[in-house]
Design a protein around this nucleic acid. Structure first.
Length: 497
RNA sequence: GAGGACGUAGGCAAAUCGGUGAUGCCGCCAGACUUUCAAUCUGGAAAUUGCGGGUUCGAGUCCCGUCGCCCUCACCA
């Protein structure tokens, strides 16, 4: 039997970082064993699901490069089948009609309400004391025929326990006493999550369910549904959660866009780098290696390498430099400076285009220059955004001067205001404007003025790039070329800023 | 409240059947590169493996307890 796994997000927000990792692991597992990776949108809850979320999730997955091997399944399209399954169980006496009037949810603090109720019922009520549980078939049918609204609940046996072997967490057992007769179908005929998931997984012939640990205890309920339906449950593998700094829950509401996949795309992350980072959250190949290509991940991935302890995703909302996990940023930088240049170029091109810095000559006449320049500046860049931000001066005359750079490297040495234009004059006579000749000119110039070489170089850097840091100035002069170097050295704009 | 998980340096991880000074990466600190650095190179600090017991010649690895943290418990998904 071929392995079939699915990633099943509910479209109530964008693609969450934890969901993205779940998708990754599903994808890797499927590819590792030569199975199929499927996608199902769990939009059963029409009130909360939005098309925009679906779009955002699809976008996030597309960015990460996980395309499903079969058509996307929309759970809402299967509602009739879910209903039929509930009715079948009712017919077989494995479920019953519950005529208890539906309680209006207090909505606000629903979790707290549940916990509170559980505390109060503690030891008092049995999970099986529903008065309608043992209503005779005739009585139940009569009430229904009379138009009384009812929900359909699964009839769970009085004694016994469910158990399954989780591929990550091992043997899981739960006593029936602890499981309520769960609602399968709402009184308005709407199928509920657990029923829908089980029915769809059966329909899609899913062999392995790989999902977040938050579903671990709910799995028992689903197993009960499988058993009622007389279908063998799939294998389950639950993934440790990804937590916020301090071990707290990572939530969209509290942490905002930091948890959204599209944020990383929009902030200049390479999908390959982020995938790599995500793969190391909760999984390891058991070796001292950090950088893996998708193929390597696919080859090495196994459920056995998944950890049981939750991982913390680090970030500091108040620190622009640490807006997201350090290691993720480092990983991205590592990819930017070490990946084959040819693979990086299209990304840089797209970035420059979106910043309106792209010129078509970069693809023909200035191709060599463009490639050389990208190769030079990528060395100390962290995200694709840096090419249009810190790298702006390489592609446009319209760039900003960083105040700190101007103060520290320029205004602190007033002599530079006349020296640098003077240096520009010397450049005029340099025929071969390359490393060695430029070096000679600058060294002689500094000596003549009795200045330290660094003083001249750093001042020039501030004027030519607007920044205090960057590649070796000789490389910058050469890259920018004679004409621009001279022009910028003479410019007084920075001095007047 | 009940049930279920988890707990190796600030973070992510490693450590075959329990067996040398607990390993790698990120981050941090320092030195070098005497042209910068959120680059590169080199070095360093940082963990009584949550805590307390127990088993053992020997425990991060097994057992018990304790604390912490997370998850689930809905006519949400």
């Amino acid at each position: 039997m071929t392995t079939r796994v699915r990633f099943a997000p509910s479209p109530t927000g964008y693609l969450h970082i934890g969901s993205a990792r779940t998708a990754l692991f599903n994808y890797l597992y499927a590819k590792h064993v030569g199975g199929k990776f499927l996608l199902r949108i769990e939009d059963t809850d029409l009130a909360r699901s939005t098309d925009e979320s679906t779009r955002s999730i699809l976008e996030g997955l597309a960015w990460l490069g996980f395309s499903p091997d079969e058509e996307i399944v929309y759970q809402s399209n299967n509602a009739d089948k879910h209903r039929a399954a509930a009715l079948k169980l009712l017919e077989e006496g494995k479920a019953y009609r519950d005529f208890t009037p539906k309680a209006e949810p207090s909505d606000k603090n629903i979790k707290a309400t549940i916990a509170k109720r559980a505390r109060q019922n503690q030891g008092e009520k049995s999970m099986r004391d529903n008065p309608f549980r043992d209503l005779s078939k005739e009585e139940s049918a009569a009430k229904a025929a009379a138009g009384e609204p009812f929900a359909i609940r699964l009839k769970i046996a009085e004694v016994g326990k469910t158990s399954f072997e989780d591929a990550v967490y091992g043997l899981q057992e739960r006593d029936y006493e602890e499981i309520e007769d769960l609602v399968l179908l709402r009184s308005d005929g709407h199928p509920l999550y657990n029923l829908a998931v089980v029915c769809d997984d059966i329909e899609m012939e899913i062999t392995d369910v790989i999902r977040g640990q938050d579903h671990l205890t709910n799995t028992h309920k689903q197993i009960l549904i499988y058993e009622a339906l007389s279908i063998k449950p799939p294998r389950f593998a639950h993934l440790p959660l990804i937590l916020a700094p301090g071990g707290k829950k990572l939530s969209k509401r509290i942490h905002g866009e930091i948890v959204s996949m599209t944020t990383y795309r929009d902030h200049g992350f390479l999908a390959a780098a982020f995938r790599n980072f995500l793969a190391l959250m909760g999984w390891s190949a058991g070796e001292e290696k950090e950088i893996y290509t998708l193929d390597e991940l696919t080859e090495k991935f196994s459920l056995e390498g998944i950890h049981r302890n939750p991982a913390i995703f680090n970030f500091d909302a108040n620190n622009p430099k640490r807006w997201t996990d350090d290691k993720a940023i480092w990983m991205n930088a590592e990819y930017i400076r070490t990946m084959p240049l040819a693979e990086l170029l299209p990304f840089v091109k797209a970035e420059l285009k979106s910043a309106k810095l792209w010129r078509d000559e970069y693809d023909d006449d200035d191709k060599v220059w463009f490639e050389k320049t990208v190769d030079l500046i990528r060395e100390r860049f962290f995200t694709l955004k840096d090419f249009s931000a810190q790298g702006r001066a390489y592609f446009s005359e319209d760039f900003d001067f960083e105040p700190a750079a101007i103060d520290k490297n320029l205004k602190k040495f007033p002599d530079l205001q006349t020296w640098l234009p003077e240096l520009a004059e010397r450049f005029e006579s340099v025929e071969d404007f390359t490393h060695d000749p430029i070096h000679e000119v600058v060294v002689n110039f500094a000596e003549e003025k009795g200045a330290k070489l660094g003083q001249i170089m750093n001042g020039a850097r501030a004027l030519l790039t607007g920044l205090a840091v960057g590649p070796s100035m000789l490389a910058v002069f050469e890259t920018l070329g004679k004409e621009k170097s001279i022009m910028r050295l003479k410019s007084q704009i920075a001095w007047n800023s």
